[in-house]
């Protein structure tokens, strides 16, 4: 079982390599941010898979990662609002031709 769980954890890590490529490549900042979000979710998965192998306390790490997974993204949307302190929902989409 240990072998399988470690293999599965390694496999998830490998898929995160793909997310890394998207962070590197972009092209938009939203793309990079969402790819980082995937790295976070993958990290939560890996921490869970390691729990039976290393220590069940790894679940606490998974909780903290999941709880703060949204953190960087919130920082991102705040920062990209006009005054750097707002919320994208406060603004009207300016050029929504492809986003409707």
């Amino acid at each position: 079982m240990t072998g399988w769980l470690l293999f599965a954890a390694a496999a998830i890590l490998l898929t995160l390599g793909g997310a890394f490529w998207r962070v590197w490549q972009g092209p938009g900042e939203a793309d990079r941010m969402m790819a980082a979000q995937l790295v976070g979710t993958g990290g939560v998965g890996v921490a869970m898979l390691l729990a039976p192998v290393i220590s069940w306390h790894a679940l606490d790490v998974a909780i903290v990662l999941a709880l703060l997974a949204a953190f960087a993204a919130v920082g991102f949307v705040k920062a990209s609002s006009p005054d750097g302190a707002g919320d994208p929902e406060e603004a009207e989409p300016s050029e929504g031709e492809e986003g409707q």
Binding site: G40, G43, A47, L50, V61, V64, L68, F71, A72, G75
Partner: peptide
């Protein structure tokens, strides 16, 4: 943080997850 989990240093992993992956990201993006 995952590396610390792998090494069995859960206390450090917790701190790294909260600081490295959480607070610092917010700070730097700002």
């Amino acid at each position: 943080a995952l590396a610390w989990v792998r090494l069995g240093a859960i206390d450090v992993a917790l701190a790294e997850a909260a600081i490295g992956a959480g607070l610092t990201g917010l700070l730097l993006l700002g």
